[in-house]
């Protein structure tokens, strides 16, 4: 289930990154793209649960690490949206993905050629805004007079560690520009379709079996009745 894949890096080299995968040769294979940063950590357990449920329904799935994600040893500060989009395209080919399922801001990296679903899609700009806000609030609590505008300006020019994530200037600028969700051929899945509360709101990583089952069922039903 845990394996690795040859992933193109920001340096142009190919290095192995981790890949969580359930194989069902001859059946659909869903490329799973997790959310970014803290939301990735909060969702990972739930995403694996969804992949297991798809596995029970004989649907393959694959969730690749990209450079700077999860177990990757590549430096986050050296990454960009472009590097990640190219890497996700390579992962789709490597895994022979037939569909894609994105979570939150993961929608930014969906290979345009694949049909599929975008769960609770979030723009890069809003993702960045919430990290900047957390940084401003933390700074003000520490007695520093910080503002979103000056932080943003500094992050755009020279990168910044935001809420513990070391973002390079190029990544900051690209996320800021990703201010609209582009669904392309993807079908949006809203939180209200799954019921319950979005797991990205929880303070700690968590799981919700009912939401996982609802999402897996929705995907499976659309795969058998296109």
């Amino acid at each position: 289930m845990l394996t690795h894949w040859p992933c193109p890096q920001s340096s142009g080299k190919i290095l192995e990154e981790m890949l969580a995968k359930f194989d069902h040769p001859g059946r659909p294979c869903v490329l799973v793209i997790p959310p970014l940063f803290d939301e990735h950590n909060k969702f990972r357990r739930q995403i694996i649960e969804i992949m297991r449920l798809l596995d029970d329904l004989e649907i393959g799935s694959a969730m690749p690490d990209l450079p700077g994600w999860n177990e990757s040893t590549a430096l986050l500060a050296q990454q960009s949206v472009g590097v990640w989009q190219a890497a996700m395209g390579a992962a789709a080919s490597h895994c022979e993905a037939t569909h894609v399922l994105t979570f939150r801001a993961g929608v930014i990296f969906a290979p345009p050629s694949l049909p599929g679903w975008a769960y609770a899609p979030q723009t890069g700009a809003k993702q960045l805004r919430s990290m900047i806000r957390a940084q401003v609030i933390a700074a003000r609590e520490a007695g520093a007079d910080e503002s979103s505008d000056t932080l943003m300006q500094s992050a755009r020019e020279s990168g910044m560690v935001l809420a513990g994530w070391d973002l390079g200037a190029q990544l900051v600028r690209e996320l800021e520009q990703a201010d609209e969700v582009s669904l392309g051929s993807l079908t949006e899945i809203t939180q209200s379709e799954l019921g319950g509360r979005g797991l990205w709101l929880r303070a700690e990583p968590d799981e919700d079996p009912e939401q996982a089952a609802a999402l897996a069922t929705l995907v499976a039903e659309e795969l058998v009745a296109p």
């Binding site: 809003k126 805004r129 919430s130 806000r133 957390a134 609030i137 933390a138 709101l201 303070a203």
Partner: peptide, 8 residues
């Protein structure tokens, strides 16, 4: 941190 989440 919950304030940041609430406002967003």
């Amino acid at each position: 941190m919950a304030v940041a989440g609430l406002l967003t």
